[in-house]
């Protein structure tokens, strides 16, 4: 079998072996491959000298540059914080009104705020901040805890029913489940509340039920929502006479809310976001409401 022959096409000798018809040429390794090999090894060698690389028992070579990924990212972070500083310091130190008056700062707020909102708030309130079922619309002018950037910033800082020490607390009791009201009463007060924002639902046929509902309301709900049902921002009780609803204003949802209560939850952002980021977000959200015609 060991017969060397010359391949007619390449002019190269074979190695003299054959495996089921397959032969090999004895072509030397092309010079390009060797050069390429040397280049990549030189690159590796250089990197080994410069950077941490080789383990040595209980330690490793640190590299002559004396840097590592932790130092580098800390440096990058410091650099980027410094680059942002003119904006963030201004946001942190100036009053809300001053910032709103400054078109440049507001451009910053709209840019940075959009990303901050998207990565932190949009999960509940949506990318467009228009909310969803169970999560309030932030672009309207209906605010449970008061609108305006100061109030919004405070809500962001402490949250609502959050673990923060100063959290805003709002508890809508479970009137039905905890047997404070009977089923008929729940239904009556739901009809009554519905009629506040939809006067057309008040007809001669249900006048009696509405009257009963009004009495239940005054006895049970008015303490928080007020006798006129316009709500209270001190306890986050919504205005029930307008047509803005967090959970829904149809009869079925109203019955559910009154029966089972509501404990809306807004996380605290005190630790996760810096004071300037919280302020930026408050301004961003406030700005969404302003732009709305």
């Amino acid at each position: 079998m060991d017969v060397e022959e010359v391949d007619p096409i390449s002019g190269r000798k074979t190695t003299g072996h054959e495996w089921n018809g397959i032969k090999e040429l004895d072509t030397p390794v092309p010079r390009g491959v060797l050069i390429f090999l040397i280049v990549t090894h030189l690159f590796a060698l250089l990197w080994w000298v410069l950077m941490p690389t080789w383990p040595l028992g209980t330690t490793y070579t640190k590299g002559v540059l004396g840097t590592d990924q932790w130092q580098r990212v800390e440096k990058d972070m410091a650099h980027s914080q410094a680059a942002r500083a003119p904006w963030t310091t201004a946001i942190e130190t100036m009053s809300f009104d001053e910032i709103i008056a400054d078109e440049n700062l507001m451009a910053f707020v709209r840019g940075s705020g959009r990303q901050l909102f998207g990565d932190n708030c949009a999960a509940c309130h949506g990318m467009d901040a228009r909310g969803a079922a169970n999560y309030p619309d932030l672009t309207d002018d209906d605010w449970l805890w008061g609108g305006g950037p100061e109030n919004i910033a405070e809500t962001l800082r402490v949250g609502i029913n959050s673990p923060h020490g100063e959290t805003r607390v709002a508890q809508m009791p479970a009137f039905g489940r905890d047997q404070m009201l009977e089923r008929a009463q729940v239904r009556q007060v739901a009809l009554y509340v519905r009629s506040l924002s939809h006067p057309e639902t008040s007809t001669a046929d249900n006048a009696e039920a509405l009257q009963a509902g009004r009495e239940v309301f005054l006895a049970n709900c008015a303490a928080c929502h007020g006798e006129d049902a316009t709500g209270s921002r001190d306890v986050g009780a919504p205005n029930l006479t307008d047509d803005y609803w967090v959970y829904g204003g149809d009869i079925q949802t109203l019955v559910t809310s009154i029966h089972g209560g509501r404990q809306g939850h807004m996380p605290t952002w005190d630790e996760r976001l810096s004071p300037s980021e919280i302020k930026t977000l408050a301004l961003y959200v406030n700005d969404l409401g302003v732009e709305k015609p």
């Binding site: 491959v33 390429f36 090999l37 990549t40 690159f43 590796a44 990197w47 690389t53 990924q69 932790w70």
Partner: peptide, 20 residues
Amino acid sequence: PHWVQNLGMTFSVMLLVPSW
């Protein structure tokens, strides 16, 4: 650790020659 990452990177580069 950064040193392992660097080993992986340099050997990946050297690996290109036998692959090609």
